[in-house]
């Protein structure tokens, strides 16, 4: 598993060289986009991480998890991950801030940390995507799009926990 990262990078670069791409020039151009991306997400992330960290310190997050836990237990879903999963379709930045909190509280290699990462990796900001895609072509009646998309988000969260429990 540790080799995934180096091998993908090496493979892509080698393939680029074979295809006569100016590998390093293109690489630096792309890396610049990485800086730009960080620059764009920084304000959002700072604002939301601060508010999540306040939520945690005030005890509100713990309280919320306790309220939600009877419902979660029936599904076999850890209640610590519910706030993040609920916010995921609505706000990408908000759920990233909650993911950051889970990873810090329990550790990235813990069961909860892994589950949270898998949930974040297998879902998207549903509402944002729907608004953007249909908004661009002025479609107002989206029929069952939202239902199907939210079913997918729900399934992703449940399956994420199952895979981490059984495969890792």
């Amino acid at each position: 598993m540790e080799l995934v990262m180096p091998c993908v990078i090496g493979g892509v670069l080698l393939y680029g060289l074979v295809k006569k791409v100016q590998v390093f020039d293109v690489f630096t151009k792309g890396a610049k986009d990485g800086v730009r991306l960080l620059y764009t997400i920084a304000p959002t992330l700072i604002g939301l991480i601060v508010s999540v960290s306040m939520l945690k310190a005030s005890g509100a997050l713990t309280l919320l998890c306790e309220w939600l836990s009877p419902f979660c237990e029936k599904l076999g879903f850890p209640s610590e991950l519910l706030p993040m999963s609920l916010l995921r379709p609505v706000s990408g930045g908000g759920s990233t801030a909650l993911l950051n909190q889970v990873l810090r509280d329990y550790g990235p290699d813990s069961f909860l940390g892994r589950c949270a990462s898998v949930i974040a990796g297998s879902t998207e900001t549903t509402f944002y995507a729907i608004t953007m895609y249909f908004g661009a072509v002025k479609i107002k009646k989206i029929r069952h799009t939202l239902v199907a998309a939210l079913v997918a988000d729900f399934v992703a969260a449940v399956v994420a926990v199952m895979t981490v429990r059984w495969l890792m």
Partner: peptide
């Protein structure tokens, strides 16, 4: 501080494929 940041990859694949399929 993860020791192996990519070790979740198979879980991510399975869960996103199943989710997409169900959607």
């Amino acid at each position: 501080g993860s020791k192996s940041p990519f070790d979740i990859i198979f879980c991510v694949w399975i869960s996103s494929v199943v989710a997409l399929f169900m959607g």
